[in-house]
Design a protein around this nucleic acid. Structure first.
Length: 868
RNA sequence: GGGCGCGUAGCUCAGCUGGUCAGAGCACUCGGCUUACAACCGAGAGGUCGCCCGUUCGAACCGGGCCGCGCCCACCA
């Protein structure tokens, strides 16, 4: 790298990153010893990626943020543990392997459960480490020495203990209950895995004859096939049209079943006819009403999606859709179909399989949530867990206060098999299989989120009293996406409080969703997904990019910086420009380092403490560095990661490179740079340290080249701000000089002064005792004592520069420019005068604001006068 | 139906505890291969801060009402 510094003018991440990562890994610093108390340590449990997964943009953002926090803590000398692991992801993984089997011409049923599970383990051996390796490419400083998996024996032990304990407390129970049956995965799924989609259906109006009298009751339904399971008709108790019918009986067409007409406030009088057919076995609402009124539950659709024997001979065996047509046909023949109208409505679909949910009654395992939710509500209410941004709080409370039983059993083979055994009428639940003959284990496994809910403590060894658990639980921070706040985060809080007995984390940060550049969801199937690795290494741009072609190899630092800069409290569109800007930053640091490191004389080393230099630009940059440190710290503490990223960029570009290095350059090039070398080295090193948690690779690579820098940058002390190093005088002096240079450059450009040519001028301004030389050099003005008549007057803070006649100044251009300026000044003066003439302003505004306005007016008048 | 959030320069977004003619990156224009960087440097143009009321000496920022957009939650046949 050292020779690279001389040869290259651009930073090459492809070359540097693997080498730097290997050094980090070898150092063992990613793995903290489990010592000390959780309060003095810092830990984050990674949201476990699916073993089936590949790194996507969400992971990359996640990783950038968590690594920023972990690295900052580590540099602060805190034991920082980033708990790593993967999730077995029941349905997702099972489906992957099933697809593989299908390609081989077999199915899981054919090979049997044991062989199938063995296949999944093989599959996991082969592909499970993919995403871990990808996290390494990001530079994520996870504890790779202790990778966890939700099906590790120790983790399984935790899951089983929780199940058995909650069963013992009566919170886990088995019941016949309405579930969301997913015909695609042939399993029940939880409410949270259901999504609504708009579907165009037909609303059928069906006449049900009354039993005791003439006449009919007409009901409206989009699912006529379920009427075979009707056991009542319901109307609203206040609906006068039907008051006289309540208590009467109707006859179910086709079947002939006698249906009581009942009153229930759930029914909306204004919808359809105001009469609702009740099918307790196939509609969640009807199920509730049915239980409330003690109605019979007749299942006419089975778990295979076909009509059961209970649907009657004519329909048994048909699919639900076929049955619908058949039922409508019969109704039409019998003259029972009053009318049919198009109806657009929301219908539940499985997020997993994409198939339409079939609500049906099934024997499943459930968890009662209210007793667990109450303490979890308190924990957030009293601030033991803080959720950011706060807008999410209301949602949390709303959901938790209306929490419903959780269906935790899944009819899958890949996962934690229920520790439940049956023998005849007996049921046994326990960690060890029961004694005796004839027991069979329940074939279901647990919902994947059941094991995920234990993540922050099961990964640390709970229920055993491990050193890791003692040192790192509770964790400090949790990163999550909005859509799994309930699926995962809320349940972790509940389980953390119930089992280890403490909230699992102090701060929850809900990160934004990164959308495709066109605002659509990032998704592989839409062609809108962007592979983070393609941004790191270079790779094809997906079709959503108009530009096409390949991404350049931006490197992990650029990607991390870009993602942090994009992040916000709202969802954001992916913006390649931001990644490019990140690369500019890495390149800028590389070149700033070239300037400093290639100029430092032999023998000069990084000072061990902040130098106390005499030169004004040195004092200025040390002071500005403190401000940058404070701004970074503030942003990170407030979880405003875009401020951290952008603030770093502004400091490096806008202060360090644009001004400090330009100001100090002549001294660095001098035969004896004196203090300049040490100060420049110090500022460079501090800047690298400050930037390290954001862009770890380039900073570590450059740190290696600093003479006198010891060890790894990742282990160096974090640069804490020190207000004692503020130097108001230097900031004022250099700030004034910068403004003067900008004024003079602007003037030069306007009058068309040739770029390479110095302009003679007299400095007629206060406050440039220490900076006149620099101003002249950077603005290309040659200071003169010549008393001649100026050809132009350029306002700078504290006075003016009188420009003397020379070839560089075109009198006509100057006349144009001064006329424009004069007009502009007059306008501004009028505005300021107007404001100060306003009695309300002068009387009510704070004196400082009024004074600022007065000063400004005075300055403007002086400039106008100088302009002549 | 409820909740959260967003509409600021051509694009993507900062700014919003109210107060120096509104900021960044990219794109654009002009000028520069100035001894760290042309994947660079310097300068510049570009905005009714969605619309309308109100509060205030003063509103992109606070309040109300509209218009447009996104996301989440919800049992409406």
């Amino acid at each position: 790298m050292a020779s690279e510094l001389e040869q290259r003018t651009r930073y090459d991440p492809v070359d540097a990153e693997p080498r730097v990562f290997a050094r980090w890994l070898d150092s063992g610093l990613f793995h903290p010893e489990p010592e000390g108390a959780p309060e003095e340590n810092f830990s984050i449990a990674i949201p476990p990626p699916n073993v089936t997964g590949a790194l996507h943009m969400g992971h990359a953002l996640n990783g950038a943020i968590q690594d920023l926090l972990i690295r900052t803590a580590r540099m602060r000398g805190v034991r920082a543990k980033w708990i790593l692991g993967t999730d077995h992801a029941g349905i997702g993984t099972q489906m992957q392997v099933e697809r593989q089997l299908l390609r081989e011409g077999t199915t899981r049923e054919q090979i049997g459960r044991e062989a199938f599970v063995e296949r999944v383990w093989q599959w996991r051996e082969q592909y499970g480490s993919t995403i871990i390796e990808q996290y390494k490419r990001l530079g994520a400083s996870c504890d790779y020495e202790q990778e966890r998996f939700t099906l590790d024996p120790a983790y399984v032990e935790a899951v089983m203990k929780v199940f058995v304990d909650l069963y013992g407390k009566g919170l886990i129970y088995r019941d016949n209950y309405m579930v969301n049956w997913d015909p695609g995965s042939r399993s029940a799924i939880s409410d949270l895995e259901v999504e609504e989609r708009e579907v165009a259906d037909t609303l059928y109006y069906v006449d049900y004859p009354l039993a005791g009298a003439s006449g009919t009751v007409t009901v409206a339904t989009v699912r006529p096939e379920t009427m075979l399971g009707d056991t009542a008709i319901a109307v609203h108790p206040d609906d006068e049209r039907y008051t006289r019918l309540v208590g009467e009986t109707a006859l179910l067409p086709i079947v002939g079943r006698r249906l009581p007409i009942i009153a229930d406030p759930y029914v909306r009088p204004e919808f359809g006819t105001g009469a609702l057919k009740i099918t307790p076995a196939h509609d969640p609402n009807d199920f509730e009403i049915g239980r409330a009124h003690g109605l019979e539950e007749i299942s006419v659709i089975g778990e295979d999606g076909r009509m059961t024997a209970a649907a009657g001979e004519r329909f048994a065996g048909l699919t639900a859709l076929e049955a619908r047509e058949a039922v409508v046909g019969v109704l039409r023949e019998e003259g029972r179909l009053a009318r049919a109208v198009p109806q657009v409505h929301d219908v539940p679909f499985s997020q997993r399989s994409g198939e339409r949910i079939e609500p049906l009654i099934s024997l499943q395992w459930f968890m009662r949530m209210e007793p667990l939710a109450a303490p979890a509500i308190d924990a957030v209410r009293d601030g033991r867990v803080r959720i950011h941004p706060e807008g999410q709080l209301r949602r949390y409370f709303q959901w938790m206060e209306n929490i419903r039983p959780w269906c935790i059993s899944r009819q899958l083979w890949w996962g934690h098999r229920l520790p439940v055994y049956y023998r005849g009428e007996e049921t046994y639940v326990g960690l060890e299989p029961p004694e005796g003959e004839g027991w069979t284990q329940d074939s279901d496994v647990l919902d994947t989120w059941f094991s995920s809910a234990l993540w922050p403590f099961a990964t640390l060894g709970w229920p055993r009293d491990t050193p890791e658990l003692r040192a790192f639980y509770p964790t400090d921070f949790l990163m999550t996406a909005r859509d799994i706040l309930f699926l995962w985060v809320a349940r972790m809080i509940m389980m953390g409080l119930e089992f280890p007995g403490a909230v699992p984390f102090a701060d929850v940060y809900v990160h934004p969703i990164i959308q495709a550049p066109d605002g659509r969801r990032m998704s592989k199937s839409l062609g809108t997904g962007i592979d983070p690795l393609h941004l790191i290494d270079g790779g094809p741009r997906p079709p959503v990019f108009e530009a096409g072609g390949d991404f350049p190899a931006y490197g992990a630092d650029a990607l991390r910086w870009g993602l942090l800069a994009m992040s916000s409290s709202q969802d954001v569109r992916f913006n390649e420009d931001k990644v490019a800007q990140g690369r500019q930053l890495t390149n800028k640091l590389f070149n700033a380092s070239r300037l400093v490191l290639l100029r430092v004389p032999e023998g000069v080393e990084l000072p061990s403490r902040a130098p106390a230099p005499a030169a004004v630009e040195d004092r200025w940059i040390l002071s500005r560095l403190q401000r940058a440190k404070a701004a970074m710290a503030r942003a990170a503490d407030a979880f405003e990661f875009h401020h951290a990223a952008l603030g770093l960029y502004d400091f490096v570009h806008g202060e360090l490179c644009d001004w400090y290095l330009e100001l100090v350059k002549p001294r660095l090039y001098a035969e004896d740079p004196g203090e300049a070398s040490e100060v420049a080295l110090y500022v460079l090193a501090e800047t690298l340290a400050l930037a390290h948690p954001v862009i770890p690779f380039v900073t570590e690579a450059l740190w290696e080249l600093i003479p006198g820098a010891e060890g790894l940058l990742m282990a160096r002390a974090y640069p804490e701000p020190d207000a004692g190093l503020h130097d108001e005088q230097a900031e004022a002096d250099v700030g004034r000089a910068i403004a003067a240079v900008q004024e003079l450059r602007g003037w030069r450009d306007r009058v068309g002064a040739a770029a390479g040519q110095a302009v003679p001028g007299r400095l007629e301004a206060e406050g440039y005792e220490h900076t006149a030389e620099a101003v002249g050099r950077l603005a290309r003005v040659r200071w003169s004592e010549d008393g001649g008549e100026p050809v132009a007057s350029v306002a700078i803070p504290g006075g003016t520069v009188a420009v003397l006649a020379s070839e560089a100044v075109d009198p006509q251009a100057e006349a144009r420019r001064s006329a424009e300026r004069r007009a502009g000044l007059e306008g501004e003066i009028a505005r300021a005068e107007g404001k100060l003439a306003n009695q309300g302003f002068v009387a009510k505004a704070p004196p400082a604001v009024v004074q600022t306005e007065r000063d400004k007016l005075e300055r403007l008048r002086a400039e106008l006068e100088a302009l002549g």
